[in-house]
Design a binder for these strands. Sequence first.
DNA 1: AAGACGAAAGTGGTTGA
DNA 2: TCAACAACTTTCGTCTT
Length: 317
Amino acid sequence: MVTPESDEEKGKYKKEEGDEDETAEGEKVKECPECGSKSLVRDYGKAELFCADCGLVIAENIVDLGPEWRAFDFEQASRRARVGAPMTYRIHDKGLSTLVTWGLQGQGQYKLKKWQQRTHIANTTERSFIFALSEIDRMASALRLPMNIREAASMLYRRAMKKRLIRGRSIEGITTAILYIACRQYGVPRTLEEVREISRVGQKEISRAYRFLLRELDLKVSPASPVDFVPRFCSLLDLSGEISSKAIEIIKRATEKELTNGRGPIGIAAAAIYIAAILSGEHRTQKEVSDVTGVTEVTIRNRYKELSEQLDIDVLL
DNA sequence: AAGACGAAAGTGGTTGA
DNA sequence: TCAACAACTTTCGTCTT
């Protein structure tokens, strides 16, 4: 599985707006097949091309790592082809189910009862697991998240179950928190509000489950970077990739000057987008930005005042 | 009339004794 | 466990376009 994002990985994403990229099969891609976004980003560290909106990994090994990688890849591909469908974490028994038929004739009543008790427990945990996976899938669909993130979420749930962390807790809370974590880990964070909207539980419970899982699975989720929100917010505001790049540039300068310390990343992202849009002659009102980002106009104002003053950006309306 | 501005009070989460 | 604290929100009156 791809495991994401440590601090040092920040900043090595390179924007390739409007540029064409090649998948391993040699096709040209310009937009994300999952969500249609044109914000495709190359991560040279992991040698991936992925969608900055939803996190879908479109191509791996896009960088020429030497002449032999294709052969390597092909060999693997053909080897896999012989084993059947790729194993997935999203099927409750990892897709390796076997059909077993029992002959129960001749068993005594007692033994049967015992067996039923045992399988009852197995059935209920199994049942809730299946429910959890379907919930992850439902919410991931609503958020338009790609398979790789759903896989990661399912895997996290598996780990949580193995450690017996689910018992006595609401599946809804856990699954929502897990999805929230998975998005963060893949560098396409969702806001707590966005996640809450498609969840069946409230924000309080999601946060509780979130903190609980981080502690118990000792996951390290570095605080979300404002940069990670920019492409998605921009496309929600119908702003071009140029503006997105400009906003990211502003954030980078702000980060160097340590203007982002202690501030909420979403507020920073919102302000940077607000500024970038005005500078590009594509004005968006504070209300519009506020609506898609979920931070108030007041916060956008405060951040954008700070940024424009400290970075000597003249924002003339 | 809509957008931007900023003061002031309120809220929820973190930190440190 | 409690209080102090910073960031953010809510609310609202005022100014600008």
